[in-house]
Amino acid sequence: MIDALVILLVLFAAWTGWRVFRVDSMIRATFSLMLSFISVGAIGVLLSAPYIGVATVFMMAVEMMVMGIFMVMFMMNPAGLNPMMMVHQHKLSIVAGVLAALGLGAAVLTTTLPTDPVPGETDVVSDLGHELLGPSMLIFETAGVTLLATMIGAVVLSSRRGRYGQADEGSRPPGLDPGGPPAGRQPEGEGGHHHHHHHHGGH
């Protein structure tokens, strides 16, 4: 019974994952991805990893809401009224994706997988807690510090200007002559869509 449910959820996760790149609206893509994550979380709950499963569902529900906001901010195709197909190197990507899936699938099928399920009486959440705050505490703390660094990095990257000037001040090369334009190759125009903006100079 549980096995059948797990298999159904696996199929659903893969199908919703596929729908992410096939729907016409980015919001629908976001919710499709969220459904995929939720099915993986449900698989966790069914396969005796309730903490991981529930944490996945909570985290991904919030994360996909944030992603939805970004989708609205950067959306090309509001409401999915037009067909949306914004791809490049499409054939190469299909080949790479199929090869990756087939290669990993072949590895799974040719391996003799061990069978050693979690014993029924195991208190998995308590085990995880003791592991996190016991032998693996350093790893757990490292993840915490990494997340702190991420928060700082995200603020630094996305802030418009700091107290001491532009956020990207240190990342621009100095001018060749004092006060002159910065050295090196210039970013192409402000619009970002001018691909053939030629360099000046060399006259």
């Binding site: 994952g17 596929w18 790149f21 893509a29 914004m86 990507s93 899936a101 990993l104 997988l113 069978t115």
Partner: peptide, 27 residues
């Protein structure tokens, strides 16, 4: 387990396709 791992392989393949093919940063 085999089916779960095959599903994981499919998800990774689809994800790789999306990461390589999509033009929009968010996608």
């Amino acid at each position: 387990l085999t089916i779960v791992l095959l599903g994981a392989a499919a998800l990774i393949g689809i994800g790789l396709y999306g990461a390589l093919s999509q033009q929009s940063f968010v996608m």
